[in-house]
Nucleic acid binder design. Sequence first.
RNA 1: GCGCCCAUAGCUCAACGGAUAGAGCGCUAGCUUGCGGAGCUAGAAAUCUAGGUUCGAUUCCUAGUGGGCGCACCA
Length: 525
Amino acid sequence: MLKNLEKKANKQLLKSFENLELPVLKFLPAPEHTKADLTTNWSMSCCKLLKKNPLQLAESAKSSLEKLEEIEKIEIAKPGFLNITLKNSFVAKEAENFYKTSPSSAKNNKEKILIEFVSANPTGPLHVASGRGASLGDSLVKIFRALGYTCDAEFYVNDSGNQAKMLGKSLKARTEKQEPPENGYHGDYLIELAKTIEKGKTEQEYQDIAVKAMLKTHKEDMKNFRVEFDTWFLESDLYKKDELNKTLKFLDKKKLSYQNEGATWFGTKQDDDDKDRVLVKSNGLPTYFLADIAYHKNKFDRGYDKLIDILGADHHGYIPRMKSAIKSLGKEPENFQPIIHQLVHLIKDGKQVKMSKRAGEFLSLKGLMKDVGVDACRFFFALRTPNSHMNFDIDLAKKKSNENPVFYVQYAHARISSILKKAEAEGFKASKKIENINESEKEVLIKLAWFESVLEICTRDLSPHHLANYLIELASMFHSFYDQNKVVDAEDKKTTEKRLLIVNLVKETISKGLYLIGVNAPESM
RNA sequence: GCGCCCAUAGCUCAACGGAUAGAGCGCUAGCUUGCGGAGCUAGAAAUCUAGGUUCGAUUCCUAGUGGGCGCACCA
């Protein structure tokens, strides 16, 4: 609703100012103290251009916009804000259509997006840090889709190369009741796995078994964490299809690679990298980087226009060379958007838990899910921007009490469900129309109207935290509304049925929002 | 040494260059025979330092301080 109004307002301004170069007017929620519904800083944003002072401009804009039938009144504040109060009848009427219209954002946007995330090596259980990436990626995919974009989720499985080899060696050692090699994998999970396998196989066979087993646990963990992937892309498939060599030839043809000291190099330094990078080592083996270029080439070849990679902060140094690689593939920088999320620090007993080979259950994502619960975990991750260096207080998260805001939001949903049940039992039906709304009803309805914009901000910033915060605000608004307005026992039947519709809209929005961040919306708690 | 990220209330975090900087937890004072009190109302409490750009800076730029991470012919 706000978008249509915004369009209309812009049109109106163009008409009044007869100037096609005007900056676009954008509505924002009005701050509390203004007592208005919407605000805009339009007159400040174009005062330079028009060489008039913002207050004068605000006056002209005011008289222009006041002609719109949706607007009740406009007040001008200090430097030149326009504070707009909407007509109650307009808000009420638009609210009826909230869920009848689909999002407009992506209507003209046919680009296909691929988000790659987690992509942990299949050499051990997933740990907590993977949970952050998983939560972030899954929410973004769902939000893009909710806005009508084509967006897929992919997990890249590094089942080739040194690490996988080492995994095979380690498993082999375990079947022979020996310690894995120095730089192998020492976790207990291989001891467990070894118990179920015969001795005397080749390293390659053990590697295959181990990778398969690890991949299985990763898939289980992701499923339990409510994270869905469209594809689990195997690095080994790149080798099978000879895509590394094809990529090498491709780069050679473009004269982007060169030989030095027996190795093949790629000139990333000319872009923003510190130094050039090796593609093929002097021993003839390809680097991970070459495989990754081939992998990204493959993604584009599959028809994706925009690639989003979610990486932990410990890999940020990798980005300049990857950007350089994307350029060499003939793509624009905006076709590749890496998201770096900062590392998660686990706090237990008030102290940071350090990573170690001997670290116990609680460091694994599985353990965390068990301790904290998926809802709390997903919501907790969703609340933070990827850039925040977050502390995950295990003791606090374990409490499952109202210290965790996820329960606050879920409680609102459960409370509404309960009201609706009661209303149904007493023979009330939510009305189809909303008429004669009061101030707190209006406030709630306008909050609901911002939902789509919040999702857009999430896609702009590539972070779901705006949505999580919005849900807290919406829940708070509902609780407050509920405290002031009787629903089932309202003054009359008409009011009850009107409020049932409003409350229903809140419920649907909370439910939809929670779904987007992978949290359940319970009917009761 | 170079690069990336961060610094906001007692704690964990928000704020698309906008107004009187928001939440949750904790704290203080109320609301309790409630349509679910896991709630509501009120209150105390914060932008690391110094410059700069701007009508306007928590936000952008420069320098500093403090912290996290990274700088392989590893993946």
